[in-house]
């Protein structure tokens, strides 16, 4: 599983430009199902199972895209100005390295600040790709880059960029691998453009028109020094989302997941997230409405180039989702 995760996080795929991740996903899932399609926004939709009487049509969604930056100007001296794709924070950028879609590398630094301790604005940051003039620089306005940082295996815990949400992608692939039978029609969606507003999930949910929707994504934790107050910790089990700032999870689904976790002795936590949302928000309001929820993987340092998750949580999430899909669901 770690190998798959490493492959996934080391692949480049900022929002709207997920094609490399898409290819890798399709390569990995095609042995589990032949029923795979790519829609107009680039979502991968993989279907497994055949609905039996009492079964449901279930959409699972993990997003392929990651946050990044986009060039807004190449200046006279070959420095690049940029803006963000998704929720990038300036404090996480200085001294960071980026890689453009064409392979070029760059480092981010900052203009001289009036006060060395102030948090800079994006207007004050620039990318240096090692060129001295605009003419030399092959990059143009509109070119995208992602943050670069090697994958670290700490044993039980792993650290990388883009674990948000390649960890969800990896979990879905592993669920597909292990899913032997299901009474449901299951649609595994590997979605696009989540980081810029759950856009891929909006259109894929419309196309699938499922009975239930579940997103698999990361959530922040409250277990680090003087962190924001949050009842989720790393390593204490996957989090069953009750709400986030964009969605109230369907209480029947929350209860159903709790029952599964308790009966199968799978550790779990309950999540109330006050900033952020996931693909489930888009699924819930699709067409006439879709009861929706989320399974969240606790993750420290979300949207920094060094996100950290615990492999126990990942494996327990796989178990929880497998149990969920294997049995009839009666809400």
């Amino acid at each position: 599983m770690k190998e798959l995760i490493q492959q996934l996080v080391e692949t480049t795929g900022p929002s709207g430009y997920e094609s490399k991740v898409r290819d890798l996903v399709i390569e990995n899932i095609s042995r589990y199902t032949k029923d795979v399609k790519v829609d107009a926004l680039g979502n991968v939709i993989a279907h497994m199972g055949n609905k039996k009487p009492g079964g449901l049509s279930i959409m699972l969604s993990a997003h392929m895209d990651e946050i990044g930056v986009i060039v807004t100007h190449v200046d006279d001296n070959g420095f690049l100005r940029f803006t963000t794709i998704g929720g990038v924070r300036a404090v996480n950028c200085i001294g960071g390295r980026v890689q453009f879609l064409n392979g070029l590398h760059g480092v981010i630094f900052v203009e001289k600040l009036e006060n060395a301790n102030q948090v800079p604005t994006f207007d004050q940051l620039y990318i240096d790709c090692g060129f001295s003039t605009r003419k030399e620089c092959p990059l143009q306005v509109g070119d995208l880059a992602i943050f670069e940082r090697p994958f670290i295996d700490m044993g039980k815990r792993i650290v990388s960029k883009a674990l948000d949400d390649r960890i969800g992608v990896a979990i879905q692939i592993d669920v597909m691998r292990q899913l032997k039978q299901t009474p449901h029609d299951v649609f595994f969606v590997f979605s696009t453009q989540e980081e810029v507003g759950t856009r891929g999930a909006t259109t894929s949910a419309y196309g699938i028109n499922p009975d239930l929707g579940i997103s698999i994504d990361v959530t922040v934790t409250g277990d680090t020094p003087k962190s924001a107050r949050m009842s989720v910790s790393l390593g204490k089990g996957p989090a069953i989302k009750v709400r986030d700032s964009g969605m109230l999870a369907d209480p029947r689904l929350v209860q159903h997941f709790i029952q599964i976790a308790e009966s199968k002795k799978i550790p779990y936590q309950l999540e109330v997230l006050e900033g952020g949302t996931t693909d489930a928000r888009a699924i819930q309001t699709s067409r006439a409405g879709v009861p929706s929820g989320s399974i969240s993987i606790p993750c420290r340092y979300v949207h920094s180039p060094s996100e950290m998750v615990d492999m126990d949580d990942v494996e327990n999430a796989v178990r929880l989702i497998l149990s969920f899909l294997s049995d009839p669901i009666n809400l």
């Binding site: 926004l41 100007h73 509109g142 856009r199 891929g200 259109t203």
Partner: peptide, 19 residues
Amino acid sequence: QPGGGGTDAGSIHKQREGI
């Protein structure tokens, strides 16, 4: 220059199965 703002494309591309 990429950045904020929006046009009708912002709502068009999210209709139905994506445009």
